[in-house]
């Protein structure tokens, strides 16, 4: 079933504040195998001009995913999560995020399309800091594959 295009342009309430911590940055950097000292050593980060250790480029997926979840669980939109795949992802960085940042995500539905049986939904999240400045903009395209036809449903 096609998603309702009247949701295009909808903005969702801001997500709860996410506190960026040294421990989570280190955990994330280790999980992607990156030993860059700017992620783990406050002295190295300060020497590079930052107030504290900084985040790897895709660290903000943590906030982005939470923001996306607000939309995909919206019962009014009725998106079938079990048939959803991640089509694309982008990050636009206005400033480097560091430990101590307090960020909120404000999610917008930029577009909804229906092509060849699949729904495409483009989401944008503005990640704002404690001063209400947008520090990073994330964009994701989610694809909801067509539901199996009745004869394809396994018994």
């Amino acid at each position: 079933m096609a998603l309702d295009p009247s949701f295009i342009g909808r903005t969702y309430p801001a997500s709860p504040v996410y506190q960026v911590s040294r421990a989570k940055i280190r955990e994330f950097a280790e999980a992607i195998g990156d030993d860059n000292p700017l992620y783990s050593d406050p002295a190295a980060a300060q020497a590079a001009g930052y107030p504290d250790v900084v985040t790897p480029p895709t660290f903000l997926t943590i906030i982005n995913l939470a923001a996306i979840n607000i939309v995909i669980t919206d019962p009014d939109l009725g998106l079938d999560y079990s048939r959803m795949v991640h089509g694309d992802q982008s990050f636009t960085y206005h400033r480097q995020v560091h430990a101590g940042d307090e960020l909120r995500a404000i999610v917008h539905i930029d577009d909804i399309m229906y092509r060849a049986g699949n729904d495409f939904i483009n989401l944008r999240a503005d990640l704002c800091d404690a001063d209400d400045q947008v520090v990073v903009v994330t964009r994701a395209q989610l694809v909801v594959r067509e539901a199996a036809k009745p004869e394809e449903v396994p018994a």
Binding site: N36, L38, A48, Y50, V54, T55, P56, P57, T58, V85, H86, G87, D88, Q89, S90, F91, T92, Y93, R95, Q96
Partner: peptide, 12 residues
């Protein structure tokens, strides 16, 4: 320095 990255895009 990751602060030098301004935009990053991928399609899966």
């Amino acid at each position: 320095d990751p602060g030098n990255i301004l935009e990053y895009y991928v399609r899966f």
